[in-house]
Simulated scan of single mutants.
Amino acid sequence: MPTRRRLILASPFLAAPALAQAQWSPERPLRFIVPFPAGGSSDTQARLIAEPLARALGQPVVIENRPGAGGVIGATEAARAAPDGHTLFIATTGTHAANVSLYSRLAYNPVRDFAPVTMVADYAQFIGVGPEWPAAPQRSLEGLVAALRADTTKRSFASSGNGSPTHLAGEMFGHLFGIPMEHVPYRGQALAVADVIAGRVPLMFPSIADVLGQIRAGRVTPLATMAPTRSSAIPDVPTTAELGHPSLVSSIWTAIFLRAGSPPAAVARMNAEIVRILAAPELAQRLGEAGFGVQSSTPEELARFQQAEITRWAEVVRISGARLD
């Protein structure tokens, strides 16, 4: 299965030929639908892209936050947009991979209703504990597993909601180590983090980007990054692969899509412009410092990656037994 790490990190030199061939230009302001609230990870990325994209296209790019139902509301809105290249959508692991298996019915089809443009970012999750968790040796992946096996009262974990990547990562962890875990869902990551810090729930599997401030403040301790390679945001934290568990990998990704049926020239122009924006050193640095790994691609690479992710998350959902309807 292709991994997100194999996607090509595009350079500004690769963008130039595509840009020369793409003559499409928007005729009016563009909508940029974000299926989560303002201030979240997807919203932050969309806003960092929207301003330089507006300058490049000569039209305003208006962010529309349409949160709710794990991204379903926003994705459904984007799927109903006119196929004219004027509505962008920032998709996530949930909206365009996991939701297909979590819901028996979706009001949109993440493959049929959307035209891939480019990947945006990939941000690894980690296995973390709060300040109430005992000190070494339990503050290590090996110590954590031993503690959970020895004490059933410590087996609960917090997530940002049912079916979220932070929920499914916890189910992956429990399945791998043969430990029945108790899932405690919250309405968003902030509430989940607050209860882990307060000691009400011992464990969580959030993305690095969402909890980086709490990590740096010492209120959340990462025991292992759920990725093949270490994160530049927390370089001293070992990966699950390093610790002998290469299959325990989970991250949240974002990508940009247009409505299916949009003019191919619109897709090409959007890809060229957004890849160029993501290749800018200042933007890459800002995203990296926030815990996001820039991961641009061609539309074809994104389409293949999405199909692989739909298959991968279907298995995770099957193991977890999670359903959202």
Rank of each mutant, 00 (worst) to 15 (best):
A107P: 15
S156Q: 09
A124L: 00
G291N: 05
I234V: 15
P264G: 07
A69S: 12
P52H: 00
A75F: 05
F157P: 07
Q285N: 14
S251C: 14
F177T: 08
S297I: 10
F89N: 03
T221I: 12
L106V: 14
S231Y: 13
V294Q: 01
G170D: 00
G213Q: 00
I73V: 11
R200M: 02
V72M: 06
D325K: 11
R259T: 09
F13G: 08
F305L: 13
A147H: 09
T298K: 06
S156C: 01
G130D: 10
A115Q: 12
V100T: 15
P29Q: 00
I197A: 14
L324E: 08
L7Q: 11
R318V: 11
T153K: 11
P264M: 09
I208N: 04
F126E: 09
I49P: 10
T240V: 06
L30W: 04
S156N: 06
A16Y: 08
N99E: 15
A82S: 13
S42Y: 06
W133H: 15
N162F: 15
F89G: 02
L88E: 00
A146T: 11
A272K: 12
V294F: 04
R4A: 04
F157R: 04
L48A: 04
G213C: 00
A158F: 10
D325E: 11
G58M: 14
L57S: 02
A97D: 01
A20T: 13
A314P: 06
P26E: 03
G213V: 01
G128H: 10
H245R: 00
A169V: 01
I90K: 01
A217F: 06
R55M: 09
I63C: 05
T95I: 14
I215T: 00
F177Q: 05
F157C: 13
A91I: 06
I310N: 04
T3N: 09
R304T: 10
A265V: 14
P281W: 10
L19H: 11
A54V: 02
A279C: 02
L203T: 08
S232F: 12
R47M: 01
Q307G: 06
F177I: 08
R155A: 03
A124S: 14
G161Y: 12
